[in-house]
């Protein structure tokens, strides 16, 4: 279970330091997968980082009563000058366990990512899809209670997306997901509940379809302006 109590968050910058999240109260129950929905810049990724413990709230508290993965995203987490294998080894060591465990993690990731010989080449030579495969495989090598994903599957090809979805469905009942995605299909497919992040508030929906329809409605009410280049 993850409990967020009266949480506020802002970042300090030279120019602006407006609140990104204002008084967020959420209880995410065990084994319920959640989709975070909202427009660009609404604070979805910030919320995910806070849940992951990468960042601390400015006010309020977050309790994590389960093991939570790092956010599996589009960037970060790897040292570009080192090979895929070295990066995987590093994470396996951070997560603890003996040599057997490290070997198991490496074998798992190599098998899942299917990037062939590139596994022993520096990560900076990878395409974004290959990096996504490595990242995804790496997080699945550990048994977390909750996996956090920030558009992790967005750049993958069709085969990889299917594989990732299948891997997650296999874990339903054992662990859950909290995902940020702009693909309705993925959210509907994997999540039961939804959170709509809008104007600094986060609203909880038992049914993810309600969250999606509210979000879509809010978009309809906006007049869409397309600036013309002149």
């Amino acid at each position: 279970m993850i409990k967020i109590h009266k949480m506020w968050k802002r970042y300090h910058h030279h120019i602006a330091n407006d609140w990104i999240l204002k008084d967020v109260n959420l209880i995410i129950p065990k084994k319920v997968s959640v989709g975070l929905i909202g427009h660009n810049g609404a604070g979805k990724s910030t919320l995910l980082r806070l849940i992951a413990g990468m960042d601390t709230p400015t006010r309020g508290n977050i309790w994590r009563k389960c093991s939570v993965s790092w956010p599996i995203g589009l960037s970060g987490g790897f040292k570009p000058s080192m090979t895929g294998r070295q990066n995987v080894k590093f994470v396996a060591r951070v997560m603890g366990g003996g040599d057997d465990e490290i070997q198991r993690v490496i074998a798992f990731v190599q098998d899942f990512a299917e990037i062939g010989k590139s596994f022993d080449e520096p990560v900076q030579t990878y395409s974004s899809g290959m990096q996504a495969r490595l990242r995804f495989g790496l997080s699945l090598a550990f048994d977390f209670d909750v996996y956090l994903s920030d558009e992790a599957t967005a750049v993958g090809d069709k085969a990889f997306k299917e594989k990732a979805t299948k891997a997650f469905k296999k874990r339903v009942g054992k662990s859950s997901l909290i995902i940020v995605s702009h693909s309705e299909g993925i959210i509907k497919d994997l999540c039961q509940a939804g959170v709509w992040v809008h104007e600094g508030k986060a609203r909880w929906y038992e049914d993810v379809n309600d969250a999606l329809s509210d979000y879509t409605d809010s978009l309809k009410n906006r007049t869409i302006k397309v600036p013309t280049a002149s």
């Binding site: 990468m54 790092w70 956010p71 995203g73 970060g76 790897f78 040292k79 590093f90 951070v94 997560m95």
Partner: peptide, 11 residues
């Protein structure tokens, strides 16, 4: 140099 690794909250 290690900023990429702070994604893992243990580091």
């Amino acid at each position: 140099a290690n900023s990429g690794l702070f994604a893992y909250r243990q580091v």
